[in-house]
């Protein structure tokens, strides 16, 4: 076994996160799928850093984490605001612009 297995794991986790985004209706669970995708990317980055003996990959993963934290704050604030206005956290209910 070599480091490629980590990349396989990252690919599977990324695909599962993407499927969650496509399938689930609860906005919070959809958001968790996005988080899963970001985490899978981080795993790939850390593996690449180790593969090439270059720590820059880890720095990139660190940046991804920070941006993900900022994204979570804004995204969850939007979900809370929508919930207050519409009393629902389902992504299907946000169809006000539909004619």
């Amino acid at each position: 076994m070599d480091l490629v297995n980590y990349l396989y794991l990252a690919s599977i986790l990324f695909a599962l996160g993407a499927t969650t985004v496509l399938l689930r209706r609860n906005a919070i669970v959809v958001f968790m799928g996005v988080e899963l995708m970001l985490n899978a990317t981080n795993l790939a980055l850390v593996t690449f850093a180790r593969m090439h003996g270059d720590i820059t990959g880890q720095v990139l993963a660190f940046f991804v984490m920070v941006v993900a934290a900022a994204e979570v704050v804004v995204g969850l604030a939007i979900i809370v605001t929508i919930f207050r206005a519409r009393r629902s956290a389902s992504v299907d209910d946000v169809n006000l612009l539909k004619s």
């Binding site: 396989y8 599977i12 695909a15 599962l16 993407a18 496509l22 399938l23």
Partner: peptide
């Protein structure tokens, strides 16, 4: 959705 997810997994795993 399941089809697209499976396709994405296939593409990613294939590339790796």
């Amino acid at each position: 959705g399941l089809l697209l997810g499976a396709g994405l997994a296939a593409v990613l795993l294939g590339v790796v």
